Amino acid sequence: MKPEVQELLSLLQVERLEYNLFRGVSGEIGSPQVFGGQVLGQALMAAATTVEASRSVHSLHAYFLRPGDKNARIVYDVERIRDGGSFTTRRVVAIQHGRPIFNLAASFHVPEDGVSHQDPMPQARGPEGLESDRELRRRILGLLPERQRAAAKTEGALDFRPVEPYDPLDPKPGPSLRHTWLRLADRAPDDPLLHQALLAYASDFGLLQSAMIPHGLSFVQPTLQVASLDHAMWFHDGFRMDEWLLYSMESPAAGGARGFCRGSLYTQDGRRVASVAQEGLIRVRKPQPE
């Protein structure tokens, strides 16, 4: 297994401290604070550890409360809200320096047969032949902020291939709808929970950008403050993160320094396996006088 993939899989594992207490460490993706997708994935793993193995997560709802400190470990306090005949509910609070930085509610469900339908998969070019997001960033490596430059140099555990590339140094206003293919860069163990946690982790990458594109904004602009405020996911069907998934993202509304985004994830054969919704802070500050 590639070292960077092994590192990501290890990052999502949480250490059990007590009956309902877990602890995680932080990775580096070039962001000034702890990456939101990391806390999302770790919190889901902590919650699932307290649930029967036969039940899988079908939905989660989370709020990002404070910026996370990448140099401090994160404690996850799991509350066992309900263990029902078909559904199990857990609440998780992530804590650093004695204060909550994040909370999560997750619901788990026993496998059941039922009615099934979905909207058609969007028409998009396949992943073969597309440049990865990392390759695109390496072209402009010397012009990126130092933190993002270091992250772009490393080989990533996730392979993102945008169908509609977006130049962060020369952002042009355009439609919010965008598509990206993604997958893990190596084979992962046959653990459905791990693949769900990996998708939760990956789903926070680039989603908020769909609310920035209509305004010609990008993450590298020094006057822009961007942060995830909340995140929700629904899992509809089984999938593997080491196989290609199409992430279709759009932002139907923005206002009050907040952008609302939603996403849909499909396998290559057209099955919709997950849906995502997120609201994020998009605050444009006035340039400081020299």
Score class of each variant (00 low, 15 high):
V75K: 01
V78M: 02
V273H: 01
D113L: 15
M1P: 06
S10T: 13
G36K: 01
G142F: 10
V51C: 04
V75M: 10
A46E: 02
G36Y: 00
P222M: 09
D133M: 12
M241S: 03
V75E: 09
L11V: 07
H109V: 09
M241H: 05
D170M: 15
F219E: 13
A124P: 06
P3C: 15
G259A: 02
L208S: 02
V78A: 03
R240S: 00
M121T: 05
A47I: 02
V39K: 00
F108N: 02
F87C: 11
R66S: 03
G142T: 12
A53C: 14
R262K: 09
L143Y: 12
D133T: 15
G114P: 01
F102G: 01
G206E: 00
A277S: 10
I140T: 04
R283L: 12
R91P: 10
K172G: 15
V34A: 08
R23V: 05
P111D: 04
A274I: 05
Q278F: 03
A72T: 12
M249D: 08
D69V: 04
P122T: 04
E243M: 13
H97C: 13
G129N: 06
A257T: 13
L229T: 09
I101L: 06
K2Q: 14
M121L: 09
P100V: 07
T267I: 10
V57R: 02
L246K: 03
L217F: 03
Q196W: 05
M241L: 09
K172R: 15
H117M: 08
L198S: 04
Y247F: 07
Q123P: 14
A152L: 08
G263H: 00
I213S: 08
N20M: 10
D186T: 10
L245Y: 03
M233Y: 02
Y19M: 14
Y247Q: 02
V163L: 07
A62N: 07
L198V: 08
V57W: 00
R137T: 11
L199Y: 00
V39T: 06
R137I: 10
V78S: 04
Q38D: 08
E128P: 10
